[in-house]
Design a binder for these strands. Structure first.
Lengths: 343, 343
DNA sequence: ACTGCCAATAAAAACCTTTTTACAACTTTC
DNA sequence: GAAAGTTGTAAAAAGGTTTTTATTGGCAGT
């Protein structure tokens, strides 16, 4: 059906319709006044020639690419998928596209942002930042495009910013053990102590157990990373020795991977999970519902992060937003089985 | 450090260096002959002004965007992440970018391809196709860009094509039960019977059990979809009644999700997995190693698919490739615990 | 009937490169 | 020492839009 062979330009349409190219442009973009009869003739020509405006020329002329850059440290995991989902949805709904770049480490991130912004490859950039944000943002320097930073509080930099309230999330997870299960003691098993998420979550945990007269000291265990193996190791070596028979305990894990490791380690040691020790994870990742024991976890509204990030860029592009905005999203407790509820 | 305020053009550089813009272009792109002294002056000016060629203008002039479109039906799951990983890696290594589009359903896919190709938003497109490929490819019509189709054999369409040998994969999985475990009977639990992957895998399964004198009839069970719940249901209702005590069985599942469902269902019925019934999954997804019983599964080289897809587009763009190419990649058995090995 | 205004459209400028063509100023070559 | 080739650079064209400015014809007001 389509006539193949590309490159039918606005000039061709103009010639066929017997008008000037500016008239074609006005018809196609639906602006300015055009006589109904002229409009009809142009539309006819557009259809007949199967004209599609050359987006490269449009980009040059309009000084924008209708593209938003999304820079992430990694493609795997629930987080990226959901972020992508939200960002893509919002972007497409506004005629924009998403260009994805992976950048791990400070240097790579600086390079990625610069690469996208400098030549005007994008109209705005969403940057997922983990540690070392100061170095990255310094390296990026004055950017000429809207930049939204995810996951790190970059207050000082006067940038749009989206955060998850990790502290509150961990607080609520811990509170669930205290309020809904009669635990006598609680533990936090995290990822790396250098990871900001972990430290915030640990803080929320500490806040929640304090009213019980418990001190965080000796109840928080950190490892190398957010991983199944670290969870397994920490639970075997640190948590297990503290479990006394006849008592009920709660473990708040740094994320779902760690939670899985913790559960399996305790089970391997002969502890009954969740009857004797309940476990709550973090992130509500895919694995939380794909195990025999469904994991109670804190859901992070990652899709919403993606949506909001794109909205922020759109707002800034359209001049709607004036001041840098910080949006803090709440994590939500999803009660399943591993805490001891239900089953 | 960067002077902010964008829009320093090649003209500015030319003026500062005291040369013409064509000379600047030749220096920046490192082509043609330029006197060493001139080169030095230009490079100096470039650095001083912090000049970055406007990529929009480049795109218009060069008639390419250095962007490859990646159209997928879904963002979640291992498959997308790994595909992205491979495609991004190969693309960036060749100065190209990846623009991601989600399109579910025939109409949406046609629209996505057309949208990307027609206005020259991309230089080539990778299209992940599930069912109904004829409708999609017909709707797309004559395209003016390299198009690589994944996962569906589109031989007739004279397009570049990447496939996984599902039949062989299932054959090997089944053979493993026969060769390494002394099973007396085997079952295949798949997703939907309309899914091409499923039917191919079922075929491989049938081929493998035939030499044992077993017939596929009554040994293959299909459900609505590739899901945990379907696996659980089919295992409870169809497989479990066929299990006799004292015998050893093997189940080849349509994918890892289904495998998980099968395992949990059988365990819930009191069957010993993997001692009495071994299970092998498909896809080597994340969940395969994040359960208590590690799942033996067929690894699909998804990252490689991404790499090869980009390479194909690059080859076609550079005119290296002449004829449409079909690449068939093999799935690989990853032996873990659920088949009965190891543990 | 003339000025002034408005609607509809055309013409031209701008966007910023890359690439082709043109042109000097030197080197060779015979 | 003139014709032919080389080298380094400038000028101009091309790429396809959008947007601004100009132009035309028709019509109302006086």
């Amino acid at each position: 059906m389509a006539t193949g062979s590309d490159s039918v330009t606005i000039h061709n349409v103009a010639k066929v319709a017997g008008v000037s190219i500016s008239t074609v442009s006005r018809v196609v973009n639906d602006l300015g006044r055009v006589a109904p009869s002229t409009r009809r003739r142009v539309e006819m020509a557009v259809r007949r020639l199967n004209f599609h405006p050359n987006s490269r020329a449009q980009a040059l002329s309009r000084k924008r690419t209708d593209t938003i850059g999304l820079i992430v440290p990694d493609f795997d995991g629930q987080y990226f998928s959901m972020l992508m989902e939200g960002a893509h949805e919002k972007a497409r709904a506004n005629g924009m596209h998403i260009m994805v770049l992976k950048a791990k480490g400070t240097e790579a991130k600086i390079e990625a942002v610069t690469h996208l912004c400098s030549g005007g490859r994008t109209d705005g950039v969403i940057l997922m930042l983990s540690e070392m944000y100061n170095e990255v943002l310094e390296g990026v320097g004055n950017i000429n495009q809207p930049l939204v930073v995810l996951d790190q509080d970059v207050n000082l930099w006067r940038l749009d910013n989206i955060l998850i309230d990790n502290k509150l999330g961990a607080f609520e997870a811990t509170r669930h053990f205290i309020a809904a299960h009669e635990v006598s003691d609680l533990f936090f098993v995290g990822g790396s102590e250098n990871n900001v998420d972990t430290t915030e979550r640990a803080l929320g945990f500490a806040d929640a157990i304090r009213p019980m007269g418990l001190d965080a000291e000796g109840r928080q265990f950190f490892g190398d990373s957010y991983s199944y193996d670290e969870g397994y190791r920490l639970a075997s070596e640190r948590v297990f020795p503290l479990i006394a028979p006849g008592q009920r305990y709660g473990v708040v894990a740094g994320n779902d991977d760690v939670a899985c490791g913790v559960i399996d380690a305790l089970m391997d040691k002969g502890i009954e999970v969740p009857q004797q020790v309940g476990v709550i994870g973090f992130d509500d990742s895919y694995i939380a519902v794909h195990r025999r024991l469904k994991i109670t976890t804190m859901h992070i509204p990652t899709k919403e992060i993606g949506r909001v990030a794109v909205r922020m860029i759109l707002d800034r592009l359209s001049g709607r937003a004036a001041e840098p905005t910080k949006v803090v999203l709440k994590a939500r407790l999803i009660v399943r089985e591993s805490c001891g509820c239900g089953k």
